[in-house]
Design a protein around this nucleic acid. Structure first.
Lengths: 331, 331
DNA sequence: ATGAAAGCGCTAACAG
DNA sequence: CTGTTAGCGCTTTCAT
């Protein structure tokens, strides 16, 4: 192993100077810098991460905790977070909770707390109160809405506004009977709740009243549930002419159900999803959707952690990432 | 932060003894151990990972490099690897290459080499020769077959035998005209090649000759490709009465195509997949498949790394994990 | 602009 | 069975 001192000896300087070069410090004479860099290259020097971490009191590791990594939305978000964090010198550890409260709890308290400098957490089962009562000193930032705005930093998108835009787009296209697919009364999920709110608000603005039989509940956000819920909507005979789905996965399941029923999208039924997952760009027809700015979500989360690690102890922040309506073939 | 010395002072022993307790060393008097443990709990002591790593010359981190994490097979394998490695005291960093050769190369050489103690690598684009020519001292173990058995440790399953079993199962069920779906001539993928070999061998044993028009090629292992390839097989009019698919994803796509064509599975066409992914347990009908022992794959890979890190410099090993045929509704 | 040196918290060799 | 202590390689204060 090549150490700082080896490079120093090779370049004929002190290790202090080599360290300065490695860490891009100012105040190193250009000639010295060049000489040191040449030695670094010649010897193939790589800083020892463990030693650096010990000295700095940091591990350089962040944890990204998500319910499931094999869902298009989270895997996309994870991939972006990893890439963006990398540019910033962080390494991201991805943890999957399967929505299990016990595992969420274990990852949050202790367990990893010595290993990572910060945590980006997309909770599923844990309540806002429990999250807020965390003792650990490791900074944490939450992804997604949570009822009652807990005293913890979190990054969100304007779900109410986005849902409203989606529905207004359908209304603008001449659709008069729009259903919502993805309501989650049982799960008490705040994100779903907000999208439902936006849906109703759009109807209200258009002078329509919302109807309970036009809000299809689901028990998960998976494709199969979208298929099931849509099939039920169609089974009544009194079918809507457009459906706003709370996720692209649900929308793709719904799309299949519409086709299975011998109807056409968007002619008979227009469809709008949420998330902008890859599959929606290749479905037939392609899927209109709300695209949250995932890069921005990752950037904001990292920004908060960086600030907190730098000692920022201002009150918990709520950061909103932008989104946009992407109009494609299904509407 | 609570340090070893704080615990030592609190318990009235030396840090050596505390270290012994923390590391589960033998030769600590039960009474002493209890007292020290009490102090650890009372103070909430957590070992400093960076210091330990520096001292041990290890990071405690392993990298798992896969083409894509959002594929059911790899996400399942990754989840198991993470869990099993955890029991062993390792933390696993998951890296996705998207099958991109440049990214594979970067992850393999340098980049992370200072950060992890070992690498479990499931290559996609890189050739065996290139993998073998790696200079890095960090031990690596490859997942999956590679032509020419490169001088690198790897963990495989008996793809030829497994494929043969799958086809023999179909033959035993009275199927006489069995197609193979998933051939990859263009990609030069060794795994696909071996499954093709097993398919042909089973036919040969049954006294049948293989036919080029019964081997459907694909350009990826995704569901959509399975759908496309199956649709083409059906379009000829001369349809087979069973299809052995080289992955469950392909099989699920194929299943859809059969249903779309107004045919029934398994009555008109029997289907067998490969991988035993979750979805195959819930499809209609459920999917018969070859189930590689993923836990065992992870265990073997970790075993090799552990041995190599312990100084084992014997010639490269090829370890074979078991598999079994899981018969379900589709055959 | 560069050098000397302390010390981050831990493990393990050495001593008893 | 337990104590003492030397570093692991690096960053950074203090000095020049």
């Amino acid at each position: 192993m090549v150490r700082l001192r080896d490079v120093a000896a090779h370049a004929g300087v002190s290790i202090r100077t080599v360290s300065n070069v490695v860490n891009d410090f100012q105040y190193v004479a250009p000639s010295t810098r060049a000489r040191v860099q040449a030695s670094i290259d010649a010897l193939g020097y790589r800083p020892n991460v463990a030693a650096r971490n010990l000295r700095r009191g940091r591990t350089g590791l962040l944890a990204l905790v998500v319910p499931e990594i094999d869902s298009p939305y989270f895997s996309d978000l994870a991939a972006r977070t990893v890439r963006i964090a990398e540019d910033d010198g962080w390494t991201v550890l991805i943890d999957q909770t399967d929505g299990d409260a016990g595992r969420e709890r274990r990852l949050l308290h202790g367990e990893r707390s010595q290993l990572v400098d910060g945590v980006i957490f997309s909770p599923w089962s844990m309540s806002a109160e429990e999250l807020a009562s965390r003792q650990d000193a490791t900074p944490i930032v939450l992804l997604g809405e949570h009822a009652g705005a807990p005293p913890v930093d979190h990054v969100v998108i304007d779900n109410v506004g986005a849902a409203q835009e989606a529905v207004e787009h359908l209304l603008a296209g001449g659709r008069a009977d729009i259903a919502a697919l993805g309501v989650q009364p049982a799960l008490g999920n705040e994100t779903a709740h907000q999208r439902q709110l936006g849906y109703r608000r759009a109807l209200s603005v258009a002078g329509q009243a919302w109807r309970a039989d036009r809000e299809a509940p689901v028990t998960s956000l998976h494709r199969a549930e979208g298929h099931r819920a849509m099939s039920e909507l169609l089974a009544t005979g009194d079918r809507p002419d457009a459906v706003f789905c709370f996720s692209d996965q649900l929308a793709l399941g719904a799309l299949r159900a519409v086709v299975d029923a011998g109807l056409r999208v968007p002619e008979d039924i227009a469809l709008v999803g949420f998330d902008d997952i890859e599959d929606g760009r290749y479905s037939i027809p392609t899927l209109t959707t709300i695209a949250p700015d995932k890069d921005r979500i990752a950037e904001l989360a990292l920004q908060v952690l960086r600030d907190r690690l730098a000692g920022d102890d201002s009150p918990a922040r709520v950061l909103t990432a932008p989104h946009r309506l992407v109009i494609r073939g299904s509407s």
